[in-house]
Amino acid sequence: MPADDNDSERFKALYVAHSREVFAYALRRLRNPDTAADVMAEVFTVAWRKLNAVPNDDSAKLWLFGVARNVVRNQERGIRRRTNLAVKLVAHFSGIDYEPDPAPEPALMELVRVALEELKEDERELIQLVMWDSLTPSQAAQVVGIPPGTVRTKLHKARVKLRTALMAQAPERFFENGHVYSGETVSLSDTYKEEQ
């Protein structure tokens, strides 16, 4: 375990630079601030223990995301570690207003959540890394540990699958030509009637 002042300073800098991103990463996937706090506690504990392995450049964020990804997967498997540290962090985060602003339409969030479930785990992660965590495909490749070329191929397939899943799940939300309808839900029968 690193223990000298330089390590402490470096750790603090990492935390200041990336804690929000790590927390948001976990929150986007788990949608619960308590479990996101668990994840964050675990990620930064790992970072402290393995500080020498954390890159010194911009890819430190990607390293943290890589750890976060694994911790989230553990959480999703039902393996939840509630350490004293996590308890303390949860207390800190308990007052966070984490509801997005402006809040997305709940039905839309649910529609997307279900559509994402249709994707394979790595496809889903890549889509979220690029579309929600604002990583480039190359950065996403580093997080999931596969070649950038493969990521681009997977992303393409994932987008097609996602689009298909969205359309199949809620055809009434879209016009037949596939464009998003930017208003209230229109029933499929109404759409057909208009086109007829």
Binding site: D101, V112, I127, M131, S134, V180
Partner: peptide, 13 residues
């Protein structure tokens, strides 16, 4: 569509 369904937007983060 995906951006509007982002549970934690960039600005919110």
């Amino acid at each position: 569509l995906m951006a509007s369904a982002n549970p934690v937007s960039e600005s919110k983060m």
